[in-house]
Write a protein that binds this DNA or RNA. Structure first.
Lengths: 247, 247
DNA sequence: CGGCTGCTTGAAATGAGTCAACATAGGTGG
DNA sequence: CCACCTATGTTGACTCATTTCAAGCAGCCG
């Protein structure tokens, strides 16, 4: 398909899909440069998606997995009655669309929350590569397996935690993910609306708003609209764990 | 590893792991008898597990996926503070432990709810087979992908539905799964406790109890302890969908 | 500049949780 | 085989966290 003569090293691969977790996950497990070249060929050219635009639709077979290069994305399912459930938010370096890894239709949709750059990874090409690179198959299973573990954490959060704990956990989680990708853990933007946060956490958006205000009053965070800074990470953790409650 | 001379046809395979969904899923996709023979070799001898006994532990690497042959199993995670969250119930013919398909540690535990027969499918053997049988790899991805979709449905249920809808959905779901495996859709036993149901659905067990009573009063179901019969499936669906509410 | 969308805040309503007492089944041991 | 004991399930009364309804506010985009 592509020119396999052109050997690409890790640096150029990383440049072609910066912070792409698939690539990063593969690296420490002993894939060599040839493998990486092949992998690089699989990553289609980046695509720019604007706020509110759809990356893949529910019920559609995109044939791809996606990696966020910049910007952010929400995934959600739509029920028969039209109700939406936000399933997750995806930051730079993170993957989405793994529910289509079996090359069947997506059970959720992905929409950009702001101007976003996306790398597409065609699944058929990945499958071909999997035969050539035994470790890659394992990586894919690991990725999708982690996805299940994440969902299980979310089930616990939704079923067992109160509103304060949910929001605190959400903020800590975002903070950690930004940090893992080299951004500030203390200051970042909430690219999603209060409504989306509430929907994701199983709360009314008014409740989210109220809690943010309460966290502000208690000098745990500072917030103005989209912009968030975490002042007291430790207290936020205590709230998330249920070891502490406000008022 | 095993004697590949001994050709086993579908019938004997099915007998060896009755209603095993992995086998069933593979069949319609064109695996031939030789493939099935190999698959059969992978399925370790059945194991009997008694009520309350553990099939695999959280944090343990079992190296297996499991299929329920008879009985039933619950899976759950335990949080740092010791709190448990039930993640699912597994009926005859269903798989569990897919979170270990990447051959890493399980992020949840599986415990028998009553006397249960289990088939073990060692992942390493499956991986070897995947090289021999291209379709199998696809099947595994499909299975795990369905698992993600199921979790997403559950997230929607926990986040957006009230107690009545949750319990109605739960009962309809169980009914459908029993039916799919050839059991009665209208009459079955709840092998799990009210506490487990409540934990799974994010409700107090008293709430579950009250709702069962309410459904009984309205002649939608009949129930005595573990035994359940669905009288008015249609109404139950209406409640689940939120088109109808009691009192 | 004006209108729109998203956010904030207040007050009232309510669904589900908590606490507590009681009922029943099933298992155990005398 | 009966009597007791413990688990689990049921029901009631009360509480409270969160939702709902409603009104006002502030950025932002055309």
């Amino acid at each position: 398909m592509a020119n396999t003569e052109q050997k690409i090293n890790f640096k150029s691969l990383k440049a072609s899909c910066q912070n792409c977790s698939l690539v990063e996950l593969c690296l420490p497990r002993g894939l060599d440069n040839t493998d990486l070249t092949s992998l690089d060929e699989v990553i289609k050219q980046r695509k720019i998606v604007h706020k509110g635009e759809t990356i893949f639709r529910q019920g559609e077979r995109s044939g791809c997995v996606f990696a966020v290069r910049s910007g952010s994305v929400k995934t959600f399912t739509t029920a028969k009655n039209g109700e939406e459930q936000v399933l997750g938010f995806h930051l730079p370096g993170e993957l989405l669309g793994l529910d289509g890894l079996d090359n069947e239709i997506h059970s959720c949709a992905g929409v950009a929350l702001n101007t976003t750059t996306i790398c597409e990874l065609p699944i058929n090409d990945l499958n071909v590569l999997c035969v050539k690179i035994p470790g890659l198959q394992q990586q894919l299973l690991s990725l999708i397996s982690n996805e299940i573990t994440k969902d299980h954490t979310m089930l616990m959060l939704l079923a067992r935690r109160n509103a304060e704990q949910k929001l605190a956990t959400f903020l800590i989680n975002l903070s950690g993910r930004y940090k893992a990708r080299g951004y500030s853990a203390a200051e970042f933007d909430l690219t999603m609306s209060r409504y989306d946060i509430g929907n994701y956490l199983g709360l009314a958006d008014e409740t989210v708003s109220r809690l943010i205000s309460k966290f502000k009053e208690n000098n745990i965070i500072n917030a103005a609209r989209k912009s968030i800074s975490i002042i007291d990470h430790e207290k936020l953790c205590s709230i998330a764990e249920g070891d502490m409650s406000l008022n």
